[in-house]
Design a protein around this nucleic acid. Sequence first.
RNA 1: CCGGGCUUAGCGAAGUUUGGUAUCGCGCUUGGUUUGGGACCAAGAGACCGUGGGUUCAAGUCCCGCAGCCCGGACCA
Length: 478
Amino acid sequence: MAKEKKVEQITDMEVDFAQWFTDVCKKAQLIDYSSIKGVFVYRPYGYAIWENIQNIMDKEFKKVGVENVYMPMLIPESLLQKEKDHVEGFAPECAWVTMGGSEKLEERYCIRPTSETLFCEHFAQVIQSHRDLPMKYNQWCSVLRWEKTSRPFLRHREFLWQEGHTMHATAEEAKAFTEQMLNIYADFCENVLAMPVTRGQKTDKEKFNGAEATYTIECMMHDRKALQAGTSHYFGDGFAKAFDITFTDKNNQRVNPHQTSWGVSTRLIGGIIMTHGDNNGLVLPPKVAPIQVVVLPVAQHKPGVLEGAENLKNRLIAAGYRVKMDDSDNSMGWKCAEYEMKGVPLRVECGPRDLENGQCVLVRRNDGVKTVVKLEELESAVAQQLELVHQGMYDRAKKNLEEHIYEAHSLEEAKQLQETNGGFVKTMWCGDLECELKMKEVAGMSSRCIPFAQEHLGDTCACCGKPASKMIYWGVAY
RNA sequence: CCGGGCUUAGCGAAGUUUGGUAUCGCGCUUGGUUUGGGACCAAGAGACCGUGGGUUCAAGUCCCGCAGCCCGGACCA
């Protein structure tokens, strides 16, 4: 049976989840290590996933009026230091350019860890009037943060991302836009990546340096650890004041605009791997899979088989799918295992017996289910099966998320639940940093978010017993 | 950044204790037989043993530094 068959060379996830993850990244040819710690090579198959993410997401950005720009990679130290909280947060992990050719530079330049300061410098130049607002910019680029530990996709020193930066005339409009972008991320994760998310707000401890509020989408991986998949920040006018960004409003008053920023990174690919993968390898969501359908001719030396398979391939390409046909000399078993490891959502098998009967066999990657279809119904059957793959993946991930959210009313109970089950532990929380630190110390969990969908679990904080009105999710995070 | 383990062909390993001709499996190349779940036979190619020093007649093996990888911890929007 397809489902039980194991791909050799990949460590079982039940044995060692971290090793399984590394094996999948390497064997599915997503990524390669370079000679510098934390700096990775994105191989064609891995980069293609990112390109598909970019294409789909970029269209969503443009629907809400966002324009793409490109900012410099270098930030002068003096510019970086203009906003106090911001520089304090990022200084420890900045990398610096100190030499230009053989000359020592007068001022050192930081390689961007994020580009708020560059955008602000530019906004100060180009914003004059309320008629210039809102200004909604985004850039696709890489950033550099000198992390102490690194893992493929989850924590790189250099990683690919997009960072959106917008300026608005009023606080209300900026706040609303912050939430709108978070919802775009959340919908993208669910509808495109089949990854269910929890939407909520970060605590002050976890929020972005310099932000007034940070909103987040949190996902649960197959090993029940949490992954922050995207964030959207409301800045108020803090940066605008620090960078002297002003505009003349309708009443001819000079005032500061209100700002947002929001980003997702190639960490999303890590999320895909750990949400959907299994012991046979990668399982890719159909909408971003570099190969959506692989056509495998069976007994291809027999007359007519190769032509028949080629015909199916061409029809699917014409129908708009990303298709590959493998007519190499490798055995059928080898090919099946290969494309399972690479997570191709749908396999089309086409052999002499199938062609005689005017049919082919579709096999879903996520659950191994085989469907025999008439050749004339190929296009509609593929569309239907890909939809079922997406839905099956989403349902499984949703079940994993929902079944591993536990309710606790004390630190001890939270610790117990985390140790036995993993997942999210939800409690009431008074809002004090002390209690957040205590939870980390006692139960090893950080706060993940204060969900928008609040529940009333009681009247007192699970950590200190004082009155509490907020419900919060805790978890062990990547 | 702290502690532990590791680095030998594209991949996975043996060889390191006791210094003395670099070994095995998979993969790769060529030819042939195969092909409905990782096929088989035959002949080949492929390694400055992570890197820089040192000890020695002689270093994959012993000593010192550095880099990278993995596992914990701390740190991390």
